[in-house]
Design a protein around this nucleic acid. Sequence first.
DNA 1: TCAAACCACTTGTATATTGCAACTAGTTGC
DNA 2: GCAACTAGTTGCAATATACAAGTGGTTTGA
Lengths: 168, 168
Amino acid sequence: MTDDQRSGCPINLTLEVVGDKWSLLVIRDMMFGNRRHFRELLTKSEEGISSNILADRLKTLLDQGIITRDDDPSHKQKGIYSLTEQGIELLPILAQMSGWGFKYLPVSEELGIRAKLLSEGGPKMWAEFMDELRETHLGAKRRRKAGPSVGERLQAAYERAVAKKGKR
Amino acid sequence: MTDDQRSGCPINLTLEVVGDKWSLLVIRDMMFGNRRHFRELLTKSEEGISSNILADRLKTLLDQGIITRDDDPSHKQKGIYSLTEQGIELLPILAQMSGWGFKYLPVSEELGIRAKLLSEGGPKMWAEFMDELRETHLGAKRRRKAGPSVGERLQAAYERAVAKKGKR
DNA sequence: TCAAACCACTTGTATATTGCAACTAGTTGC
DNA sequence: GCAACTAGTTGCAATATACAAGTGGTTTGA
């Protein structure tokens, strides 16, 4: 990867950082699937990323300040990847992509349910979810709201959709 | 380009359609720079796309229903590319990317000014701009608002920034 | 204590995509 | 009729990606 940029346009610069077919999927899995280890990201992704590509993307995202890596105290070889504030703020981009894809592309039922909820929830729900991510990834204190978190609600809806599909 | 998809996830599907380094830049130029012809897109882009890549991306975007192509009555060889409703609705994704890039990446002053305005304007401004795009690209009738359009305001701000830079 | 499983990657190689420059085939304006 | 303009295409080199196998080390459990 070279350092020279094509232009100073914000959209172009953003695309140079996350405008490939894998980076945003890794971020997505960290956000919505709470994958924090290399092995989790490698084996639990829907799309089947290869290990060399994953290693390369994690390195780039580290260099860009979108994620950080810490040693896992429970296992000398494990690393824990966390989103930075900059990474967490990619959520609105993912949410908009998710909404657009849900509206116009052949999304599967069980994977579309989260997109639907996130789209209906709008910016307010996104902000709440970002606060939850700040808690899990940055250790930020958060004023607890009543009822299940956004993350829990999305996960529960997904599991209901999977169960429903299995019954058919 | 093959037809098989990696997964039915809306984010993944969106990335498979516009998740490369050029497609969204072409859309950006059509939206914000009002480039409608092949030659305009080719020569007036900040980043310098090559003609084979541009031809390929326009074909893909046509296939995907994001743009349409009509013959230009003034010139037998010219085609006019227009955004479809599906293409126009990519604006919020571009706006979010623009805002994120403006906040975190080394954006140039004259190209950042539009990002700043768009970010400050928020979803309400985006909706207004999308209405303007529906007028120019889809021929939709629109209730005129008082004062300059969003497109005009963005363009004027950009030109002021360029003029200011030139004086230094 | 030792083998099997697990961990985060790296390496090698085939294939696909991209970037660059030149070229084609036709149209328009003077 | 010719120069400039139009939308692309072609050939080739450089780069990125995909897939399978391997590396060096750690943990688990009998």
